[in-house]
Amino acid sequence: MEKFLSEERIDKATEEELLEMKLWIYKESQRLEQEQRIVDTKVAEIEDEMNKFRQKFQFERSQFEHDKQKFKDDQALFDQQIEILKDGFDKLNADRKKIEREWKKLEQERGFLREDEYSRAEFFFQGVNSLLALKKRYRDLMKIYHPDNMCGDHRVCDMINEEYNILLRQFDSYMKA
């Protein structure tokens, strides 16, 4: 339809050519309207997809915030449970120490240790629970309190020897039993 493009041709066109131009313009406008409807449909589809994407994004964001808050709540609960467990272990440890003291008192009452032996053994040989540890503690104490040393004391050295002999006998009797 290049022949319809110039204004000179429109002015000089015959009736038949004008009718042909009108027909072409009508077809072209119909084609353009069809393309416009296709474009409008595509735009509507894209807008629908964008709205769906926004809704999905908002849903996932709210789900993320919910999960984040749940994680914080779970973390706080976990921290509380850890504190409860720590307190429980501390109480158990204190109870264990109390039971150990009561057990020693019970042993003392049953006659395994004489009262004066129990109190002095706690002083110099506190925490000794094996024969090897007893001997090592004895050597260390003798190095400190031996009368030949500057800080040595004969009376303290006698007390250490007495306690050592008592505990040594107890370990021997325990080992034989």
Rank of each mutant, 00 (worst) to 15 (best):
Ile84Pro: 03
Glu65Tyr: 00
Glu83Ser: 14
Asp87Tyr: 02
Tyr26Leu: 03
Lys136Asn: 12
Val156Met: 08
Leu141Asp: 01
Lys91Cys: 01
Ile10Arg: 13
Tyr164Ala: 04
Asp172Ser: 10
Asp87Met: 05
Met159Trp: 10
Ile25Asn: 09
Arg37Met: 07
Phe4Asp: 01
Glu20Lys: 08
Glu49Val: 01
Arg114Leu: 06
Asp87Val: 11
Gln69Thr: 06
Ala177Met: 11
Met1Trp: 05
Met50Ala: 05
Leu113Asp: 10
Leu113Val: 10
Leu113Cys: 03
Ile46Gln: 03
Ile46Phe: 08
Lys42Cys: 05
Met159Ala: 06
Asp140Ser: 14
Trp24Gln: 08
Tyr26Thr: 14
Asp140Pro: 13
Glu162Asp: 07
Lys136His: 08
Ile144His: 04
Phe112Ala: 12
Glu100Arg: 09
Arg31Thr: 00
Lys86Tyr: 12
Arg110Ile: 12
Thr41Tyr: 06
Leu167Cys: 00
Arg120Ala: 10
Asn51Pro: 05
Glu28Asp: 12
Arg114Asp: 01
Thr41Leu: 15
Met142His: 03
Glu35Thr: 04
Lys143Arg: 12
Ala76Asp: 08
Met150Ile: 14
Phe78Lys: 07
Met50Glu: 13
Met142Lys: 01
Glu163Gln: 00
Lys86Pro: 02
Glu122Leu: 10
Gln63Pro: 02
Asn51Val: 14
Glu2Ile: 15
Tyr174Arg: 15
Tyr118Lys: 09
Leu85Tyr: 06
Gln81Asn: 03
Arg54Gln: 06
Gly152Tyr: 02
Gln63Arg: 14
Ala44Tyr: 01
Met159Pro: 01
Leu77Tyr: 01
Leu32Phe: 02
His146Arg: 00
Gln81Ser: 02
Leu77Arg: 06
Trp24Ala: 09
Ile82Met: 13
Phe112Arg: 04
Lys104Ala: 10
Glu33Phe: 03
Asn129Pro: 00
Leu132Asn: 07
Ser130Asp: 00
Glu107Lys: 04
Asp140Met: 11
Gln58Gly: 04
Gln58Val: 15
Gln126Asn: 15
Gln63Thr: 14
Asp40Gln: 13
Ile25His: 11
Leu18Val: 09
Glu65Cys: 12
Arg114Glu: 05
Leu141Gln: 00
Ala76Ile: 11
Asp48Glu: 14
Asp158Lys: 06
Ser62Glu: 13
Val128Arg: 00
Lys22Glu: 13
Lys143Met: 13
Ile84Cys: 10
Ser62Phe: 01
Leu168His: 06
Leu132Ala: 15
Glu83Ile: 09
Ile84Asp: 02
